[in-house]
Amino acid sequence: MSTDTPNSVQETETGPPGARPTSVLQRDDELSEHHVYEPHRVGLPPIGTYVKRLWERREFAFELSRTKLRAQHFNTVFGQLWLIINPLLLALVYFVLVDILRDGSRGPQFLAHLTAGLFAYYFVSDSVRQASRSVVSAGRLILNTPFPRVLLPLSAVLTAFKRFLPTIAIYVPIHALSGLPVGWHLLWTLPLVALFALVAAGVGMLAAAAQVYFRDLASFLPYVLRVWLYISPVLYFAQEVPERYRAILALNPLGAPLTAWSQVLNSGHAPSADVLGLSLAWAVVLLVAGALFFVSREREFAVRL
């Protein structure tokens, strides 16, 4: 099996499971494992094996997310209700704030834009917040069990996604009551949610790994996330941004996807190609950067915790 690459760790499973004496449990190929551990500096493990292990242990990410939600009373009526009331109140407060600043000129369609943008934004920021804590708070598990650590921030994104789902139930009546168009173009929301998830996963992995080295990032993060909201086209329409601030919108990884989000939901047409292209570019860049940073660092986490 082994190619003797220096500076890498190889974990390879060899041999068919049936090659060894019996027992019902041996059906799992878990039992014939073969690991080789070799030194490395900062470097990537063999990607194929890593992804395979990641996939084998996906149940862990699902179960971790379920457990986290159970701890947040997601399964109870009031827990669910709180997940709906909280963002709804937030949307109303922001609406009144913006409407006052705009001399009361904002209509129900703006409320729909604000609510949709806010909920999508909170999906991303909730992911990043939970992901940033995921590695540091799994201390003992990391010290005792070898597994692909990237499951921890990915599970946080999954948790945030499940918390995002009930907010759709609030948005739907607001969309309908404010008389916004309904049609096939709304299917664009599905790939856009996927784009938000990719951005969330990328930034989440960066934040999770960075938190291991700099614990005080936990106290900076709320400010960063608040600023991120204010520079995103949520409290205003993207087309209202004056020329001199356009650069901020383009440099903000959520600028383009949130613009596309509003184009689909509020303007009622498919997102324009340039906005969609920029969204996709940001999502891919962040995902690759986040994954590379996290995976190349993760074997050091056990020493750093």
């Binding site: 760790v9 974990e11 878990e30 039992l31 014939s32 494992e33 073969h34 690991h35 080789v36 551990y37 070799e38 030194p39 490395h40 003992r140 990391i142 010290l143 005792n144 069990t145 070898p146 074997r299 050091e300 056990a302 020493v303």
Partner: peptide, 23 residues
């Protein structure tokens, strides 16, 4: 397989279960 070696090589055949001091 929790800590990477700095030098040298370890080969392990089989599935490992650990009961390390931290439980």
């Amino acid at each position: 397989g929790i800590l990477p070696p700095t030098e040298g090589r370890i080969e392990v055949r089989g599935r490992v279960s650990t009961l390390l001091a931290l439980g």
